[in-house]
Amino acid sequence: MDFPGGSYQAGGKIKINLTGTQETMLAPLIARAKDAQMPESVLHDVWAVQTLAQIDHDFDKFQIDDNKASLHTLRARRLDIWTSQFLANNPTATVLHIACGLDSRCLRLNPDLTQVRWIDLDLPEVVSLRSALMPSPLGDYSLIGADATDDAWLEQIPTDRPTVVICQGLLMYLEEETGKRLIQRLASHFQTGELIIDCVGTLLLSLQHQIETLTATGSSFKWGVDDPKTLEGLHPRLRMVECLGLAELEGFERMPLNTRLMLSTYSYLPWFRYLSSYVRYNF
């Protein structure tokens, strides 16, 4: 039986029908599932293991080994930490997770959903697939199917609470003006809060043919940001609080020596330090 985003197969597994940028959401899922089964797991994301076990797909084409899995989960943990810090300071906040894919962030962080309002958003076909594969948290939780770059959905999101907006793995796939417009709309819509994003540098745009997730799915990066502080200029209330390069992430020391030496050395070069960056802004 087919449904948007997938189809049920004999044996109870779901075959993914998504391609291109939407298919890339499987790469972080594979990474989190691998990490969960490592002796020194970063995220302990048991929901990723359960979700992956229900999917019929060619996972090998993503070529995610243990080192790549660890790099991904170090990034995800940093965004988890920033989100938890915001909720600790704003216990009745709204969390808006844009391009949630098959990420179990709400389940991982386990906020008190009698106090916190959590909203996950992705394209309708992704939401349909997510609903078939993952449990829905109990409490004040919503899952919205919409294109993040459209205007209509944002007008439905309440602005009565401090809001943290998480946007991971999306902006680099958008055209520059589309991505900038999304940031402007978010900063204008909410009264107060934080925006947590990740970016890739322009150098990575020229190297993207070496990224297995992109070649495996036929997708591509379109927008590179070499200095995330410049994004403050998109809105008068936007202020960068923290920006970390890959080599600056907590837990980076667990990576193999050759990886640490290469990335740490290159991080001194201005055009390389933020080859990928993890940033939070106040608004």
Rank of each mutant, 00 (worst) to 15 (best):
T94D: 09
D120Y: 00
N17I: 05
C106W: 02
D65N: 11
P28V: 02
I98W: 06
I98C: 09
G11M: 12
S104K: 08
K15T: 10
T73Y: 06
V49W: 13
T19K: 15
T94Y: 03
W82A: 06
A88E: 15
V95I: 13
L29H: 09
A48Q: 06
F62C: 00
H97N: 15
Q22V: 10
Q50S: 07
N17V: 10
A33L: 07
L121R: 04
K68H: 09
Q50D: 13
L71G: 06
N89F: 12
K13T: 03
D103K: 04
N89H: 14
S7P: 02
Y8M: 15
G11T: 11
L52A: 07
S84T: 15
F62I: 00
F86H: 12
E125W: 09
P124Y: 00
F59Y: 09
A69E: 03
L43Y: 05
F86Q: 12
K34Q: 13
A31G: 03
D60C: 12
H57W: 10
P91R: 06
R75V: 08
P28T: 03
D112M: 10
N67R: 09
W47G: 05
D45R: 01
H97V: 11
D120H: 00
N67Q: 11
H72E: 09
V127G: 00
I30S: 03
R108F: 13
V95P: 01
K61N: 02
H57V: 04
Q37G: 07
A93D: 04
L96R: 08
T83Q: 08
D80C: 04
T19C: 10
S70C: 09
Q115L: 11
K61F: 05
D120Q: 00
K13H: 04
A31D: 01
R108W: 12
W118A: 05
M38D: 13
D66V: 14
F59D: 05
D103E: 02
S84Y: 07
L109Q: 14
G20S: 06
C100R: 09
F62Q: 01
D60A: 15
L74H: 04
T19P: 09
K61A: 08
K34R: 15
L52S: 04
L113A: 06
S41G: 02
M1V: 13
L29I: 11
T19S: 14
F3W: 01
G101W: 03
I16K: 00
T83H: 07
L102C: 08
V127D: 01
L71E: 08
P39M: 06
A88T: 15
T114E: 15
